[in-house]
Write a protein that binds this DNA or RNA. Structure first.
Lengths: 73, 73
DNA sequence: TATAAATGTTATTTATTATTAACATAAAGT
DNA sequence: ACTTTATGTTAATAATAAATAACATTTATA
């Protein structure tokens, strides 16, 4: 029984609360707009530092912003 | 004023509490022993999923296990 | 003190994140 | 309807995490 971990996130939701566009958030955390887009869509397993920068920019925490689920395959 | 983020971690400390060697922890999170060693020494900016796996294996949380600091340079 | 177990460290390779650029589509505003 | 503004998406490249292998050093322990 092999397990993989997937991440869901609430970036879009928190971004809306702050009225930030993807580009504004990207500027604040110093990555490209597309990178934020890809992360929101769960396309990659971002680094811990980037996760922290994003959670700070959104006045949140990593654990609040990112939800982890273990899946069997 | 440019800012960079550095990570400090308490993996070694938590590992000791559980009486895990680097290798045991590595097996549990499915990475190499050297990878755990490098992370403990702060040599790389691990992925969010790996950070989560490690914090779970040590019955802790990401925010508890990893401390972030902003530095000027 | 000799032996084994655990950790340190470095160099090279592989895998994956993130950048870049380019264009498409959607939504909002004039 | 036209024009911005925001987001979606893809392909190619660059940057870096993680794997691998090999050997050194430290710590425990027989």
């Amino acid at each position: 029984m092999n397990k993989t971990v997937k991440i869901k996130n609430r970036i879009k939701e928190f971004r809306a609360r702050h009225d930030f566009t993807q580009e504004e958030l990207a500027n604040r955390v110093e990555v490209r707009r597309e990178t934020i887009g890809h992360i929101e869509k769960g396309r990659y397993n971002l680094s811990l530092i980037l996760a922290w920068k994003i959670s700070r920019a959104l006045e949140s925490s990593i654990e609040e912003l990112f939800k982890f689920e273990e899946l069997d395959n």
